[in-house]
């Protein structure tokens, strides 16, 4: 008689009821040279969340976003993606899971919009490997999603700010990331493009379950779109929570050092933030 083996259960530190965070930042202090840009920052991002990082200029928003994506070298043990330190991932391995979109992108060369999107497939290809039909298919669909297909043959450098930003989002989509990091994606766009880009991100979050972390300046847009806000000042986390709990009059006045009024719009919803003259 053969012995019936019990199926071995995978040993897991966490139970399904408490989802393990996608990204964990622990006691992160970081400096480019002397003065620290970030001081003892700690936060967790769970899968499916949309987190906005807000704060005055120079508060460390971009630096935090770059450290999360492994674009800057974080001190050991301070930034984990899944259960592993981001430093321990190989570069292509991390790029297949985390995508990062800059505030602005410029190239002096005449790459087309389609070529720029295809660059998102880089971490999936071997050196000198040409893109295959499935790569083309993915790029085509990503450009459909971002409404950029109609100018796929145009030069990237000749597109408008909003068009460029959507092309960059398409190139992040073909990276098929679990986490998408954005460094002030809307700050150089006019109102129409700001809303267009944020609506697009909202759909990616909702329909594809991509976790979003973005640095953003506009507090009203942040309140409207993000599920959670992290407020930074001088490299420290001042508040972390729902937009309602973070965007308090006293907190904002202290962090931004100006007088502020909160006005509830006629239709209801998040109170709007007005600087007092």
């Amino acid at each position: 008689m053969s012995e019936i083996k019990q199926p071995v259960r995978p040993v897991s530190a966490t139970t399904p009821e408490t989802p393990s965070p996608l990204l964990t930042v622990q006691n992160l202090t970081f400096s480019y040279d002397e003065a620290p840009v970030l001081r003892q920052v700690g936060l967790q991002v769970n899968a499916g969340e949309w987190v906005g990082v807000i704060g005055p200029n120079g508060s460390g928003k971009s630096t935090l976003i770059k450290l999360m994506g492994g674009l800057l070298q974080s001190p050991p043990g301070t930034v984990h993606f899944g259960a592993r330190d981001v430093r321990l991932y190989s570069k292509p391995e991390l790029a297949r899971r985390i995508a990062w979109i800059p505030q602005e992108a410029a190239t002096p060369f005449s790459f087309t919009a389609f070529e720029m999107v295809m660059m998102g497939r880089h971490p999936f290809l071997k050196p000198f490997q040409f893109e295959g039909p499935e790569d083309f298919e993915l790029c085509h669909r990503a450009m459909e999603t971002t409404s950029t297909l109609k100018f796929k043959t145009r030069r990237f450098s000749e597109l408008s700010g909003g068009e460029k930003q959507r092309v960059l989002i398409a190139s992040a989509i073909v990276q098929s990331p679990e986490l998408l990091l954005l460094d002030e994606p809307t700050s150089s766009l006019d109102l129409k493009y700001q809303v267009q880009v944020l609506e697009l991100l909202d759909r990616l979050n909702l329909q594809r379950g991509i976790t979003l972390v973005l640095a953003i300046h506009d507090l009203n847009l942040a309140a409207r779109y993000c599920h959670r806000l992290v407020l930074l000042k001088d490299g420290k986390v001042v508040r972390d929570g729902s937009p309602e709990s973070v965007l308090q009059k006293e907190t904002l006045e202290e962090v931004y050092e100006i007088k502020i009024q909160l006005v509830t719009p006629p239709g209801g919803g998040h109170p709007l933030i007005f600087p007092e003259a």
């Binding site: 790029a95 985390i98 800059p102 190239t107 002096p108 720029m116 660059m119 050196p127 000198f128």
Partner: peptide
Amino acid sequence: RDLNLTSTGIESAMSRG
């Protein structure tokens, strides 16, 4: 291809692995 990506920006190249 690594050179292609680097020519469009150092940080974007890094973010693509």
